[in-house]
Design a protein around this nucleic acid. Structure first.
Lengths: 151, 151
DNA sequence: CCTGAAACAGCGCTGAC
DNA sequence: GTCAGCGCTGTTTCAGG
């Protein structure tokens, strides 16, 4: 599925997406031509989804980071997901098996913002029965490369 | 704290970290020199933490995505965090306020891997009292740019 | 599959304005 | 902020192992 060179390419690009193909080639032991074509191939196969600048939330004033477990009372999944998609403070949303139907990851500036988000924006969403919030007090680990999970 | 041009730069780079400074300049209405110096400044201020290729976990065989809430019985935080840091399948770890002391995000290939991770690797970690696992069955939303949370 | 060379436009980066 | 400039890079194509 993935050979050693592809894994090396992915690992390098997960650490620094702005590497030039010459630098990339040095890291994986390839000249820039095959290096370029293999990266292009990884993009076409949907393995590389894009290249993103990683920002520090706290550095731009997003000091509150929380997880919200949502339980729906009724089959309002479509409406609920639509609202979630368009809400700017909801960074991620996962449908889950276990307690709760959804897990939301939210990012806001102040506790007042969090309060408003939870009590007036999420709780009143169509079909929401119960929410349970967990505030993140420290980021212990933030792995930048998921390719290491494969070993 | 951040002016309009900086927000535009961050937004553009969160969508495509491989943009050249000339392309970036076009998007924000700047020539490439000030564009370059402002991005460099954003990096030095710690607002831009790096540039990462975003991979599709499922495309590389990481089919199981789960969240694990961990409660510690004793003051073994240091040892626990050290093990978490070095475990390849644990992508993220947050210390939390609320039910549970930590929230782990894990990525593995198969249910068997998840079972082993939970029952032999995490449960037996120093000080672990209770764990509660939530499996992600669908990613509803995965916002690539957090700069939108600021409005 | 890979390398190496050649080509050109465009790039990162510096310095002067 | 702008502009001009240097050397190197990205991308493509080609010939060859």
């Amino acid at each position: 599925m993935l050979d050693k060179i592809e894994i090396a390419l992915l690992s390098a690009l997960e650490n620094d997406a702005r590497l030039s193909f010459a630098e990339l080639g040095d890291k994986v032991g390839l000249s820039k031509t095959p290096c370029w074509s293999r990266v292009r191939d990884l993009e076409k196969r949907g393995i590389i989804n894009g290249y993103r600048a990683e920002l520090d939330p706290a550095a731009i004033g997003l000091n509150i980071h929380a997880f919200v477990q949502v339980t729906l009372e009724s089959a309002k999944h479509v409406e609920f997901e639509a609202v979630v998609q368009r809400h700017p403070s909801i960074v991620r949303c996962f449908a889950t098996a276990g307690d709760g139907d959804y897990l939301l990851q939210v990012l806001v500036s102040t506790i007042a913002d969090l309060d408003r988000l939870l009590r007036v924006e999420i709780s009143r969403l169509p079909g929401v029965d119960r929410i349970s919030t967990t505030v993140c007090v420290k980021t212990v680990k933030h792995r930048t490369s998921i390719i290491d999970c494969m070993r």
